[in-house]
C-alpha cells in the first residue's frame, strides 16, 4: 500500500475556487462589454483589452519584483482591468489607461499585500487618480451609436450633468434609451440592461448577495424621490444615469473592500447611497458613485468593528464603566 495522506478534517471541500469566482464576475461583465462595443464602437474593446493586458502585466511584474508568488492565475487582475476600462470614456488616450492600471494594480493592490488586502477597490482608486490627473480627457463624452457613421466623435453632455431638480427633462434621452444605454457616459456604465443581466448571473451563481446593490440603489432612489418632490421620472433618471448601476453591482460588492456580515453590508450600502446622492445634489463634481464607494471602503474596518456577530450562545457584551474609562 502506498503512503496514505494524513491531513486535518474536513476531508471534503466544495469545488468552488477563487479563480471560479473571478471567472463568474468576468462572465457577468461580458454583456456590458458587448453593449459598450455596440454603443461606442470597437475602441471600447481596444480600451478594455489594453486595461486588462496592462493589469495582468503590472500584477506579474510587481509580484516578481517583490519576490512573491505569481497570482495572475486567480484572474482578479482581469476583473480589475475590465472594471477600470468600463469607467472610462471612449475617447480616453490609451497611455492614460496604462497609468490608471499601474495605479490600480501596483499602488493600491500590490503595495498593500495583493488580493484581499487592498483597502479600497483598485479599479475605483485607479479611476479617481485618472479623474484628478486628466480631468478633461476623463470627462470628454461622445454621443452613442455615431461611430458607425465614420464621423469624428461628436461631443455631448452626460444626462447626469443635464439633470437638475425641477429642470426640463425633455432634452434628455428617453427612459428607454437610458435603460438600453443610448446616452453619453463611460463605456461600460450606460447600458443598464446589460448590467442587470450580469447582476442576475452573479445572483444565480451566488457570487454576490443582492444586499449591497439593492440597499445602495434603493437609498439613492429614496433620497432622489424626496429631493425631486415625488417626481418619479426624475428618480428613474438618477438611477439609470451615471455609474450607479455599474458601481452598485460590480464595485460596491468587491469582497475585499466591503464588510463581511450582512448587517455591515447594509450599513455600507446605505452609506454609499447617501454619499452618492449628496454629491450629485450638492457637490460640484460630475459624479458621486466612485467617491461614495471609496469613502465607504475606508470606513469598512469601523463598520466591521460595530457589526461583529455575537458567537453562538455568548452573552451580550456589557461594557463596564471601568473598561470604557480605560479605553
Amino acid at each position: 500500500m502506498k503512503k496514505l495522506t494524513v491531513s486535518a478534517s474536513p476531508h471534503v471541500r466544495s469545488s468552488y475556487t477563487v479563480p471560479d469566482i473571478m471567472l463568474d464576475v468576468i462572465i457577468a461583465l461580458v454583456p456590458a462589454l458587448i453593449a459598450s462595443i455596440v454603443l461606442f464602437g470597437f475602441r471600447s474593446l481596444l480600451i478594455t483589452v489594453v486595461c486588462v493586458a496592462s493589469c495582468i502585466v503590472f500584477e506579474y511584474i510587481s509580484r516578481k519584483i517583490m519576490k512573491r508568488d505569481t497570482t495572475i492565475g486567480d484572474l482578479s487582475a482581469i476583473v480589475t482591468g475590465m472594471l477600470l476600462a468600463f469607467n472610462l470614456p471612449v475617447t480616453i488616450p490609451l497611455w492614460m489607461c496604462v497609468v490608471g492600471c499601474f495605479f490600480a494594480i501596483v499602488v493600491i493592490k500590490q503595495f498593500f499585500g495583493g488580493i484581499g488586502q487592498n483597502f479600497v477597490n483598485p479599479a475605483i482608486g485607479g479611476r479617481i487618480v485618472m479623474l484628478v490627473s486628466f480631468s478633461s480627457a476623463m470627462t470628454n463624452w461622445t454621443e452613442p451609436l455615431k461611430w458607425k457613421d465614420g464621423l469624428d466623435a461628436v461631443s455631448t453632455a452626460t444626462p447626469l450633468a443635464s439633470l437638475e431638480i425641477g429642470g426640463n427633462i425633455t432634452s434628455l434621452p428617453s427612459l428607454l434609451d437610458m435603460f438600453l444605454g443610448v446616452r453619453g457616459g463611460c463605456i461600460g456604465e450606460t447600458c443598464a440592461a446589460a448590467l442587470l443581466i450580469g447582476f442576475v448571473y452573479l445572483l444565480i451563481r451566488r457570487v454576490i448577495k443582492p444586499t449591497i446593490p439593492l440597499c445602495f440603489v434603493g437609498t439613492v432612489a429614496v433620497i432622489m424621490l424626496i429631493a425631486g418632490k415625488g417626481n418619479f421620472e426624475f428618480m428613474l433618471y438618477e438611477i439609470l444615469a451615471g455609474g450607479l448601476l455599474l458601481g452598485a453591482i460590480f464595485m460596491a460588492t468587491d469582497y475585499a473592500t466591503t464588510p463581511i456580515t450582512t448587517k455591515g453590508k447594509v450599513i455600507f450600502a446605505i452609506g454609499c447611497g447617501i454619499i452618492t446622492a449628496v454629491i450629485r445634489l450638492f457637490a460640484n463634481l460630475p459624479e458621486g458613485v466612485s467617491y461614495s464607494i471609496i469613502i465607504m471602503n475606508i470606513l469598512v474596518p469601523h463598520i466591521e468593528s460595530i457589526t461583529k456577530p455575537r458567537p453562538f450562545g455568548a452573552e451580550k457584551e456589557k461594557k463596564s464603566k471601568k473598561e470604557e474609562a480605560a479605553s
Binding site: T5, H11, T71, Q117, Y255, T261, R310, P311
Partner: peptide, 28 residues
C-alpha cells in the same frame, strides 16, 4: 482526493466561511 487538496490562496474576504459557521464566528 481531488476535492480535499485545494490550492491554498490568499483570503479574498468573500465571507463564505462566516455565512457557513453555525457558531456565528468569523473564521478568517
Amino acid at each position: 482526493e481531488t476535492r480535499t487538496n485545494k490550492k491554498e490562496r490568499a483570503c479574498i474576504r468573500c465571507g463564505r466561511c462566516v455565512a457557513a459557521c453555525p457558531m456565528n464566528l468569523i473564521p478568517t
